[in-house]
């Protein structure tokens, strides 16, 4: 199951293409997905604590543009957005 993580704000520094791709064999919760992203960041950026903090302080949004909780289960291939702390205006 291919999950595309769309990057926004500070998380755009995780990748040049603004999308990260993850492949999972089974259904995964947002809580576990967050841990997978942290693993990616740890490996790719030498345990960069600022990046880990960004992942931990972010929420996620579904393809329907709804904020989804840590209990939300990703059951099919889709695009998920990561929403780091905001501050526009």
């Amino acid at each position: 199951m291919l999950i595309k993580l769309e990057l926004f704000g500070a998380s755009r520094d995780f990748n040049n293409t603004n999308i990260l791709e993850f492949n999972f064999k089974k259904v995964i919760s947002i809580k576990d997905f967050r841990l997978e992203i942290i693993d990616y960041v740890k490996q790719k950026f030498n345990n960069n604590q600022d990046f880990i903090k960004i992942v931990n302080s972010s929420v996620f949004c579904s393809e329907e543009n709804e904020i989804i909780s840590d209990n939300y289960k990703i059951t099919k291939e889709q695009k998920i957005g990561i929403i780091p702390p905001i501050g526009g205006g």
Partner: peptide, 12 residues
């Protein structure tokens, strides 16, 4: 990137 405020995690 400026530090912002975390979005509240609303359950659906």
């Amino acid at each position: 990137w400026l530090k912002g405020n975390p979005v509240l995690n609303e359950k659906i």
